[in-house]
Design a protein around this nucleic acid. Structure first.
Length: 310
DNA sequence: ATACTATGTTAAT
DNA sequence: TTAACCTAGTATT
């Protein structure tokens, strides 16, 4: 159930773990066609844009992965072990692949990652990506081999990503948000709907949309063409550090410590992590008004009617 | 035990 | 606009 932060987190970890290595790639249940076109090839790059992942195994051999609502990777150490659920695909490196990769002129090591070390939900440390031995994928809505042209068409369709462009360390090369601002200024569609549309901004999902709108104190139903540019710019700028933090934490935290009932700094309690997302029926942390929920375009929208009156 | 919800997208109606 | 895909956590019986 990932938004862009988690996609970029996987990309960074998988880069660190496997780029430059000759990989075994298989689909035990035959759920993914054409894995034999990837088997035995070197993973050259891992791309990420919005909620899409691309594992580049050579020209026109990009494994496209979209986790959809349920998909998830499992990282493992030691012997391969099948987790429960329908296994869609798994990959792991050939032994001694680094020497072979060096002979092939491919960097033996992935580019160094910005974080290298992560915290899990409860703040405890988790495995260094370099110590991951294998990956399993299940529940993904797409997992198929794409051509370079298909990936290019995807990038053409998607809007700018607050976490930056494909293949770069996330956040280091911020996308230009101008196309998103232009799209929003041209339509009467509500800003809460526009923020979810991946061809407007790529990577924002239901949690970030609700929380970004709250943090800007913006009425979610404001038509796009009535949102002042300054407010759009603030939302974009706000999204970058929030989503970067979400990569490290593997968790979305949007509340400021001073607004939390406990005032606790650092990783907050679960029920203090969001201002409005899934807090309907509970009092707003800032004004005490009951947080509202309603269905908009098939997704649940959460907001505070007082803080976000206009 | 069973039902419901959900950080998503596409295809069919 | 609705259904389908598919999994896990939470709520209800």
């Amino acid at each position: 159930m990932p938004e862009g932060n988690e996609i970029h987190r996987w990309a960074e970890r998988h880069r660190s773990a496997f780029v430059g290595k000759k990989m075994h790639v298989e689909s035990p249940n035959g759920r993914t066609a054409d894995t034999e076109r990837l088997e035995g090839r070197v993973l050259e790059r891992v791309l990420a844009h919005g909620k899409h992942l691309g594992y580049v195994f050579g020209k026109d051999r990009i494994l496209h992965v979209h986790l959809g609502r349920y998909g998830d990777w499992t990282e493992g150490q030691g012997a391969l072990a099948e987790v429960k659920g329908v296994l869609r695909l798994r990959m792991w490196p050939y032994p001694k692949s680094r020497e072979k990769a060096a002979r092939d002129g491919i960097p033996a090591q992935a580019p160094s990652t910005k974080h290298g070390w992560y915290s899990s939900d409860d703040g405890s440390s988790t495995v260094d990506p370099k110590d991951v031995d294998w990956l399993e994928l299940r529940g993904a809505s797409d997992c198929s081999v794409w051509t370079d042209a298909q990936w290019a068409a995807l990038l053409e369709r998607l809007g700018p990503d607050p976490l930056g462009s494909a293949g770069e360390p996330a956040g280091d090369v911020p996308d230009d948000p101008a196309p998103a601002f232009a799209r929003i200024a041209k339509t009467k569609t509500a800003i809460c709907v526009l923020l979810m549309e991946q061809d407007v901004i790529a990577g924002i999902g239901n949690i970030y949309r609700a929380e970004l709108l709250y943090r800007e104190r913006l009425n979610p139903m404001t038509p796009g063409n009535e949102v002042p540019l300054e407010r759009l710019k603030r939302i974009w700028k706000d999204s970058i550090p929030l989503m970067k933090a979400g990569m490290v934490d593997r968790r979305i935290v949007t509340t400021r410590p001073k607004d939390r009932p406990t005032k606790k700094t650092g990783l907050p309690l679960k029920d203090e992590a969001h201002y409005v997302y899934r807090r309907h029926g509970k009092p707003c942390f800032v004004c005490g008004t009951t947080v509202q929920k309603k269905d908009v375009a098939g997704r649940s929208l959460y907001w505070c009617p007082v803080c976000q009156a206009d």
